[in-house]
Design a binder for these strands. Structure first.
Length: 841
DNA sequence: GCAAGGTC
């Protein structure tokens, strides 16, 4: 009995094409999980019984075992070291059982899977199902083909090779890495944010090494747009009437960013009023015909010119391919193999009325060899394989097919050539010009008319000729931010960065469309390199240069470390989410202008309370548990942020100014104590709600700093007593370290610090402007200047309030070593002087 | 409820 040969394709339509080609249409077909086509023929010189069937893409996909499927019971971190299992992608289809049954009694297996890495991996899935890998006497062959045409199929049949294990292993590696990284991050961040915000769709907040960088491209452009600062500009355009033409001239300066200067030029030109032709030049230019068409370029044209999204475009292309109208539509190459049969392909299009004339002209006059292009080593560029009409294909598929044909004919056509004429003019020392185009050779633009150079004819000019200006126009405009990424630009970026494959790019774009951006904790996770890194690692496996398990282990270890860091930093992401998703709830009021973008920031009252600058996408924490308001409209001299006044709760709660930026990023080194920091904590990093208010700021001249507002040493601790600037009329000093309070003369109009110091105790001299009616001054005057400790009048009016500890520690304050380094600013040089205390208290 | 890669 003749030996039986089982052949397996990647999808049913290809199995049908292969069987038809090899049997000359003389086969019998029966249904199964997928159709099986049977016929007799010869195999390797012997007569054989053929069975051709197919899988439906991958037979298996990887997942975690059942024990890891519970989201709450499994720590996502454990997923990195979890085992993975392969199970059937589509259990209901019973593909594995089908293959196993069909393989029974077959001595040869021919693998007709698509010729890419994934196809190679599916080869091994098929071998596993059929039990072909290990059995003696059973032979496995790989058919390599790049279009489903009879010619290519027969050629592949006569050049059978072996499947490539390393390429398959590279795909195994990718599957494991993508699964572990994607699922762990997705589960963690989804669980963390689940139900946290009313208007955040938190059912799934996914992360993936392809989808996230894709989203990142869009977000990056979004940020460029919202931070764009438009600038006004002006352009001068003189007009002339010349030999029946009205011409608008372009300024050699193009545009100016100063309206006065533009006006000055306009006046100069108007006064003169006569243009002189100073140069006439002609240049031959050419526009190149396209290189061969690859998938990405097809998707771009489909999106920008045909209005088909990538998803639809690929479906249409896929159908055209399986029906034999075009070659394999997934290719990176734009270069044709040297053996490519251009003449044959042209002849195949010859009978099509759509471009019959054009094709016949190319065949008769001789076609141009296509541009060299890029040979990615995969499949030839996408080309038409046979003629079709709109009736055969339907509207959309026809449009795409039509483009493939036009592009192909374009690649074999001459470049387009045109003459560029430039006339240059001078007036009042300024230069202007106009440009005309005269097409001399249409070339490929006859078949791709949308790429044609537009004709613009100019009247005759003579050098030295003088022409009167009919009017001058001043065009005013604004510089424009870049546009949002077009789908076509996004595809280019993905292609350039190796994100997704030609088949999966459309899927990723679809996936991110409805998801919200997350500001990354670890930018690496959103950057395009993440995919190239994985690709580069698994390519080592594909080429047999590295061991599969070692590569997987190495990559997983790196991602596991990133994951741990991500978990630690998740609160930063939360802060941004809160700002984004509940800005209008209870307390999203605008407060304080950002010093960087000069736009109002938003105050988020829920703890930890903070400011959020929507433009800069920055969070600024503020002190917790108190009230916050704008401090007049004062700004920080260091960073231009608007200052705030924070008031601690209760009648004795101190109030103090702070700069949102300095509070979070203290501008001076050596700030050991931060306001709001845990007393025991050894950290000096500003954290949520802890930071440097103005009362800790050592700025030497800012009127709000510790240096300016500090009055004297605190009797209770190492801190400095500073003037509470908003405590009128109950003026007071408060300690910048403890809760010590000192009440100053009540009812004063104004109390402020001066730049002078008490010669006796080095305290800051204060200036008091008493109320006219209640002034204690004997002469009835209101202004008094003195030291709060040494001036008898002031001293008598001062009341210290510090609860129990004041009486308990009474008298002990004197002579204590206070005044930590710089604690009183200017007083530090005498910090051990016993007079620098509240003697007499 | 998760990834990305096939194909339906």
């Amino acid at each position: 009995m003749a030996p039986k040969v089982l052949m397996v394709a990647e999808k049913p339509s290809i199995a049908l094409s292969i069987a038809s080609a090899l049997s000359g249409g003389q086969m019998s077909s029966r249904r199964g999980s997928t159709e099986v086509h049977e016929f007799d023929g010869t195999f390797l010189g012997f007569s054989a019984q053929y069975k051709v069937t197919s899988v439906i893409g991958h037979v298996f996909s990887v997942d975690f075992p059942a024990a890891y499927q519970n989201w709450t019971a499994t720590d996502p971190l454990d997923l990195f070291d979890a085992p993975i299992v392969k199970s059937e992608s589509n259990p209901k289809a019973h593909i594995c059982r089908h293959l196993s049954q069909e393989a029974r009694g077959c001595g040869h297996l021919v693998l007709w899977l698509d010729c890419d890495r994934e196809g190679e991996n599916i080869c091994f899935e098929v071998m596993e199902c059929t039990g072909f890998h290990a059995k003696d006497g059973k032979r496995v062959y790989r058919a390599r083909f790049s279009s489903v045409t009879e010619k290519d199929i027969l050629k592949a049949m006569n050049n059978l090779v072996e499947p490539n294990k390393n390429e398959a292993l590279a795909v195994d590696a990718r599957q494991e890495i993508d699964l572990k990284v994607g699922v762990s991050f997705t589960r963690f961040q989804t669980s963390y944010f689940n139900g946290k915000y009313g208007n955040l769709d938190s059912r799934v907040i996914s992360y993936g090494p392809c989808q996230t960088p894709t989203l990142g491209f869009c977000v990056q452009r979004h940020l460029q747009i919202i931070t764009f600062k438009p600038e006004k500009f002006w352009k001068l355009h003189p007009y002339i009437l010349h030999r029946g033409y009205e011409l608008k001239l372009e300024w050699n300066r193009n545009r100016l960013f100063d309206s006065d200067v533009t006006e000055m030029f306009r006046n100069l030109i108007k006064e003169d009023g006569i243009l002189k032709v100073i140069a006439i030049s002609e240049k031959q230019e050419s526009k190149s015909r396209p290189a061969g068409l690859n998938t990405v370029n097809l998707l771009k044209v489909a999106s920008s010119a045909l209005g088909f999204g990538p998803q639809l475009a690929m479906q249409l292309a896929e159908r055209l391919y399986t029906q034999g109208f075009i070659s394999y539509p997934r290719t990176e190459s734009t270069a044709y193999p040297s053996s490519f049969d251009f003449r044959g392909t042209l002849r195949a299009l010859d009978n099509n009325p759509e471009w019959q004339e054009y094709v016949q002209k190319l065949l008769a006059d001789g076609y141009v060899k296509p541009r060299s292009g890029n040979d990615a080593g995969d499949h030839p560029p996408i080309t038409p394989m046979r003629s079709a009409t709109q009736e055969m294909l339907g509207h959309d598929a026809w449009k795409l097919y039509q483009y493939v044909c036009q592009h192909f004919l374009g690649t074999l056509s001459p470049d387009s050539k045109y003459t560029r004429v430039k006339i240059e003019f001078a007036v009042a020392g300024e230069l202007f010009h106009c440009i005309g185009h005269r097409v001399t050779v249409k070339g490929f633009t006859s078949i791709m008319p949308w790429l044609a150079v537009s004709e613009k004819s100019l009247p005759q000019f003579a050098e030295g000729e003088k022409i009167e200006i009919s009017r001058i126009e001043v065009d005013e405009g604004n510089t424009q931010p870049p546009d949002y990424l077009t789908e076509s630009e996004l595809i280019s970026l993905m292609e350039k960065n190796g994100i997704g494959t030609d088949a999966s790019i459309p899927v990723h774009i679809n996936n991110i469309c409805e998801r919200n951006y997350v500001q990354c904790i670890d930018p690496d996770l959103c950057l395009p390199d993440i995919r190239s890194f994985i690709e580069q690692q698994i390519t080592l496996v594909a080429k047999g240069q590295a061991d599969h398990s070692l590569v997987v282990e190495h990559v997983i270890k790196q991602f596991k470390r990133k994951f741990s860091y991500f978990v630690k930093q998740i609160e930063n992401m939360d802060a941004l989410f809160e700002a984004e998703f509940s800005p209008l709830s209870d307390s999203g009021r605008l407060l304080s202008k950002c010093g960087k973008c000069l736009r109002y920031m938003r105050y988020i009252s829920t703890q930890p309370s903070r400011l959020y600058c929507g433009t800069c996408e920055e969070i600024y924490y503020i002190p917790q548990k108190g009230t916050i308001k704008l401090y007049k409209e004062l700004t920080c001299p260091l960073d231009n942020f608007e200052l705030l006044i924070f008031s601690m709760p209760g009648p004795e709660g101190k109030s103090f100014p702070l700069c949102p930026y300095c509070y979070n990023s203290p501008p001076f080194e050596g700030i050991e104590t931060l306001f709001g920091a845990a007393k025991t904590g050894s950290t000096v990093e500003p954290g949520k709600g802890a930071g440097m208010p103005c009362f800790l700021c050592p700025h030497p001249t800012c009127q709000h700093s510790m240096i300016s507002q500090g009055v004297c040493a605190c009797p209770e601790c190492n801190g400095t007593l500073e003037l509470d600037p908003v405590s009128a009329p109950k003026w007071r000093l408060y300690c910048n370290m403890c809760n010590c309070l000192v009440f100053l003369p009540e009812g004063a109009h104004r109390i402020s610090t001066t730049r002078d110091h008490c010669p006796e105790c080095d305290s800051t001299i204060i200036e008091v402007d008493f109320n006219k009616k209640t002034t204690p001054l004997k002469d009835g005057g209101t202004l008094h200047v003195g030291c709060v400790l040494c001036d008898e009048l002031l001293h008598s009016l001062v009341v210290m309030k510090h609860g129990k500890s004041f009486s308990r520690h009474r008298g002990r304050g004197r002579g204590r070593g206070r005044g930590r380094r710089g604690g009183r600013g200017r007083g530090s040089r005498k910090q051990e002087d016993p007079k620098m205390s509240f003697h007499g208290f």
